[in-house]
Design a protein around this nucleic acid. Structure first.
Length: 286
RNA sequence: GGCCCGAUAGCUCAGUCGGUAGAGCAGUGGAUUGAAAAUUCACGUGUCGGCGGUUCAAAUCCGUCUCGGGCCA
């Protein structure tokens, strides 16, 4: 099934689909070590909330890039890539197979296709954009880079801001930079190997509900209560706002769980949409 | 037992003077290379609780029954 053990193997799928367990199987099969590709399991102190594999679940397989980051620190796909690449290289150098496991589609894409030569996000610029009306940003982008404007969802403030940010920081057109990178990475997918777990919606929804219940019973509330200095980035973890509202007494426990379930289901759906496009992933029906 | 209020989309509800119904949430599909567990776009037919009546026309008015909730006994 696998002819080249010394190349990374990707285990993907929506949240609560059973990636951690499957990754463990592959680690045994391929003489591998597991590397996290989940934006929130990177953080320390929210292991329960982010459903990171517990020490018991990790078994005898080395797990990398879990509980590494202080919650006060913000991270993005590019910085994740910088963290993960040396780890992957190191695993390969020991003759082991990196089993890259996670559900953060963008982070995985950075790993598989590499970061593009676009400038990194700039906080000052972003907060400036935040104070501008969207129509103004759209007008600016249309003036500077009409091609990029025509390809961007102009209702999506974040995408418009990013495109404008690229133009301003790089001094070139975002469309040119993106085209160059697209061309360069066009053939990468054919050399990748990995699987995506697929489950029926009712099954996945049931698993989500069950996991939320477990989280709430097994320390997620305490984790949120104990975090004092949290980056805006880390605060976006599903369950964070909901549990804070519970702690403030604004909602009850059942309502809190249902809000978390709904947000998780929606996230899982977005993940499925993302992975459907990654045609190189072999489908694993669970 | 009597009286009152309610029953409309999976859920919460709106619906004017009668002209066969629409919001939010949920759900589904999509976009997405440095905020991504983020952000964003599109998608709304349902015995208007049942039966009968009035009317050219009933979610809307009348009667009755059923089921909730409340009040009085």
């Amino acid at each position: 099934m696998v002819d080249c053990p010394r190349a990374p193997f990707y285990v993907c799928g929506p949240t609560a689909s059973g990636k951690s367990a499957l990754a463990l199987e592959y680690a045994h099969k391929l003489d591998g070590e597991i590397v996290n590709a989940d934006a929130f399991q990177l953080y320390r102190g929210i292991e329960t909330l982010s459903a990171a594999p517990s020490p018991a679940e990790q078994g005898d397989i080395p797990h990398h890039l879990y509980s590494q980051l202080d919650p006060a620190i913000a991270i993005d796909a590019g910085r994740y890539c910088l963290l993960a690449q040396p780890v992957i290289t190191e695993i390969l150098s020991r003759g082991k197979t990196p089993i890259i496991t996670g559900g953060s589609g963008l982070y995985l894409k950075f790993l598989t296709h590499g970061p593009s030569p676009l400038p990194v996000g700039n906080a000052a610029l972003r907060s400036e954009f935040e104070s501008q009306p969207l129509a103004y940003l759209v007008a600016q982008l249309t003036k500077i880079d009409p091609l990029e404007a025509s390809r961007t969802s102009l209702e999506n403030r974040r995408f418009v801001s990013r495109a404008l940010e690229i133009c301003i920081l790089s001094g070139s057109k975002a469309s040119d930079l993106r085209d160059g990178w697209e061309a360069k990475t066009a053939n990468i997918s054919s050399s990748l190997r990995g699987i995506v777990i697929q489950r029926s919606r009712p099954d996945l929804h049931a698993r989500i509900a069950q996991r939320t219940k477990m989280m709430m019973e097994c320390g997620a509330i305490e984790e949120v209560a104990n975090l004092s200095d949290v980056s805006a980035n880390c605060e976006k973890a599903i369950g964070f706002r909901e549990i804070r509202a519970l702690l403030r007494g604004e909602i009850d426990r059942a309502h809190c769980e249902e809000l978390i379930n709904a947000a998780t289901r929606q996230y899982a759906k977005r993940q499925e949409t993302w992975f459907r496009r990654e045609a190189w992933l072999e489908i694993s029906r669970a």
